[in-house]
C-alpha cells in the first residue's frame, strides 16, 4: 500500500524535491547527534559512543511513548538516558583517565546491550508517535513547502537548534569558556574556572542531543523499534563533525547530505531506475573522505587542540 502511494506521488513530485524531502526527514536524527558531538568535541572530548546514546534514546523514546501515549514524554526520556550514558563516558575519561576512543566504543556496546535487554518487549508494540504537521501557509509554497514545512515537530525544533548552538558556542561567554576547555584548558584553570566541570556539561549535552536524535528516528520517522536500529548513524555523526570542521551549521548541511544519499536510492527505485542502494549508501562516506583530502590541513587545524591529544595515541612500550 505504501509502495502504491509512493508510486502515485511520483508523477506529482520532481525527483529532486522528493530527495530533499527525504534528506531532511532522514538527516534530522543524524543532525541532532552531530550537533551534540560538536558541543562535546568543542570542549575537548570525543564521544564515539554517540551511537550508543542515539540507540538508547531511540529505545527509551519508543518505550516511554508506548507506555504513556505521549511522544513528548518519550523525548524527555530519550534526552535523559542519552545524557546519562554520555555522563558515564565523561566520568570515565575525565575522572578515571580512560582512553576516549576505547571508552566511547564501550559506551556504544553498553547502549546496544541495554537497549536489546529492555527493548525486546517493545519490538512488536505499536505507538502513537509524532505526526508531520504542515505549517499553514508556508507548507503550500511549491517544493520548498514540502521540503521544509511539512515535518514532525522534532525536525522544526532542529531548525532552531542549529543556529542556537552556533550562537551559544560563538557569541556567548559560556561558549567561549566551553571552547576554552577544548583549546586551552590550563588557561581556563588559571582564571579560576574548572575545565572538568565544563566538559561534563558539554559531554552531557552532547549525549542529550544524540538521545533526542534517536527519539526522532524511532518515534517520528520509523515508528518502530528493533535491535540496533540506528545502524551506524551515531558513527556517521562523529565523522560528520570533522567533515563540518566543528561548526554547527556545517553539521546541519552535512547531515542533510547524508540524508539525501539515504533517500536517493528508494526514490530512484520508485522511478524504476536500477541503482544498487548500497552503492548510493557508500557515497557519503566516499565524499567525506574526499572532502577530508581536499581540506586536510585546514580541517585539522580547526580541530580543538584538546582533541589532538586523543588522536595522537600515546606510544606503547
Amino acid at each position: 500500500m505504501i509502495a502504491a502511494q509512493a508510486a502515485t506521488d511520483v508523477g506529482g513530485q520532481l525527483l529532486i524535491v522528493s530527495v530533499l524531502v527525504g534528506a531532511v526527514r532522514s538527516g534530522t536524527s543524524i543532525f541532532y547527534a552531530a550537533l551534540g558531538e560538536t558541543i562535546s568535541e568543542r570542549a575537548g572530548v570525543i564521544n564515539v559512543g554517540t551511537e550508543g546514546c542515539m540507540l538508547a534514546g531511540a529505545m527509551s523514546a519508543y518505550a516511554v511513548t508506548a507506555e504513556t501515549g505521549n511522544p513528548w514524554f518519550g523525548v524527555l526520556g530519550a534526552a535523559a538516558v542519552g545524557g546519562a550514558l554520555a555522563l558515564l563516558h565523561a566520568y570515565l575519561v575525565i575522572a578515571r583517565g580512560a582512553n576516549q576512543l576505547a571508552n566511547g566504543l564501550v559506551i556504544m556496546f553498553l547502549g546496544l546491550g541495554l537497549t536489546s535487554l529492555f527493548g525486546a518487549s517493545y519490538v512488536s508494540r505499536e505507538i502513537n508517535g509524532f505526526k508531520p504537521y504542515a505549517i499553514p501557509g508556508l507548507s503550500s509554497i511549491p517544493a520548498v513547502g514540502d521540503i521544509l514545512f511539512n515535518h514532525d515537530p522534532l525536525t522544526y525544533l532542529s531548525f532552531a537548534l542549529g543556529p542556537a548552538v552556533w550562537f551559544l558556542l560563538f557569541r556567548t561567554r559560556w561558549g567561549l569558556l566551553l571552547r576554552g576547555a577544548g583549546e586551552r584548558a590550563p588557561v581556563l584553570s588559571s582564571y579560576g574556572y574548572s575545565p572538568e566541570r565544563i566538559r561534563y556539561i558539554a559531554v552531557g549535552l552532547g549525549g542529550l542531543l544524540a538521545g533526542i536524535g534517536g527519539a526522532q528516528l524511532s518515534t517520528a520517522v520509523a515508528l518502530t523499534w528493533f535491535e540496533n536500529m540506528t545502524q551506524g548513524r551515531g558513527f556517521i555523526a562523529v565523522a560528520l563533525v570533522i567533515f563540518a570542521s566543528w561548526h554547527p551549521l556545517w553539521a546541519m548541511g552535512g547531515a542533510y547530505l547524508f540524508g539525501a544519499a539515504l533517500a536517493l536510492g528508494p526514490e530512484l527505485q520508485v522511478r524504476n531506475v536500477g541503482v544498487n542502494q548500497f552503492v548510493l549508501d557508500a557515497l557519503p562516506y566516499v565524499m567525506t573522505l574526499a572532502v577530508l583530502v581536499v581540506l586536510a590541513k585546514r580541517s585539522f587545524q580547526r580541530a580543538p587542540e584538546g582533541l589532538a591529544e586523543v588522536f595522537d595515541a600515546p606510544p606503547v612500550s
Binding site: 572530548v45 583517565g97 576505547a102 559506551i107 546491550g113 591529544e309 586523543v310 595522537d312 600515546p314
Partner: peptide
C-alpha cells in the same frame, strides 16, 4: 536477547579502562 550480554562486557571493560594510570596525553 543475546546482545544483552554487551552490558556485562561493557562494565568489565569500564572497570579495566577506568583503572589504568593516566597515560601521558591520553586525556587531560
Amino acid at each position: 536477547p543475546a546482545a544483552s550480554v554487551n552490558v556485562l562486557m561493557a562494565f568489565v571493560l569500564f572497570a579495566v579502562l577506568g583503572k589504568k594510570p593516566r597515560l601521558a596525553g591520553a586525556s587531560r
